[in-house]
């Protein structure tokens, strides 16, 4: 079906006229060793020998995502929003800049949207087409988030999926599923747990779980 939309890009039209061929279904990777560890080593060695990757950069990237950029960042954002109403307003209206106030910016979080859980709405984030995820605040996605099971089922049976995470959402609540189809990245602002009025920001941040910021969980209960 051709669209008559005026903003339709010319190159796409040419593509539709069949002038551009796609280069589908490469399988050059079959040339590599079958063991994935050796596959990685093969490419790494080849790129190193050609000077295309700096071995120190590889270590730096791993260190950053293994030790510095993770859900502890998002937890700080959430705890601040729970204690500072003005910050919460900024977070809802322009999450990217509000999050940048705490020093969390960059790759896979250039445009972040915060969606707030309320008495009426429970939000849950997924990426059905790949594994889009807000890296600066949550780090590298956990394996279940990247699993085909989560990607396939969350948009079709969100309540069953949530039950598998031990989470039963009241049938009166609306579940909003956000499929990350663009470069916007989503972060859930969970509801502040009960009986936490006397906790400070740092104590609160320890109650914020990764899953509560994706929507597959709630913050820890404070006893």
């Amino acid at each position: 079906m051709l669209t008559s939309n005026l903003s339709f890009p010319g190159n796409l039209r040419r593509m539709q006229m069949g002038k551009v061929k796609n280069n589908n279904h490469h399988n050059h990777h079959n040339l590599l060793p079958s063991d994935p560890e050796l596959r990685v080593k093969t490419i790494e060695s080849l790129l190193l020998s050609k000077g295309l990757i700096d071995p120190d950069s590889i270590e730096e990237i791993i260190d950053l995502y293994e030790n510095k950029i993770g859900p502890q960042n998002g937890a700080k954002v959430i705890a601040k929003a729970w204690t500072d109403n003005e910050y919460k307003k900024r977070l809802i209206t322009n999450a990217t800049s509000a999050i940048a106030e705490l020093g969390f910016t960059g790759r896979q979080g250039e445009n972040i949207i915060v969606v707030e859980n309320t008495e009426k709405i429970h939000n849950i984030i997924v990426c059905t087409l790949c594994s889009c995820y807000p890296w600066p605040v949550l780090g590298i996605p956990p394996s279940w988030y990247k699993s085909d099971e989560y990607r396939a089922r969350t948009v079709r049976e969100p309540r069953k999926v949530l039950e598998e995470f031990g989470l039963k959402i009241d049938s009166n609540k609306i579940i909003k599923v956000w499929d990350s189809t663009s470069e916007l990245r989503y972060l859930v602002l969970p509801q502040r747990p009960n009986n936490t009025e006397r906790l400070n920001e740092e104590e609160l941040s320890k109650l914020v779980t990764r899953n509560s910021m994706i929507g597959t969980g709630l913050p820890k209960v404070y006893k």
Partner: peptide, 20 residues
């Protein structure tokens, strides 16, 4: 309750794959 037993990178080759 959900058990969070995730490693950022389960194997070192996962980390390498991402970094490369």
């Amino acid at each position: 309750d959900f058990i969070d037993d995730e490693y950022v990178f389960k194997y070192s080759w996962h980390a390498k794959a991402l970094a490369i």
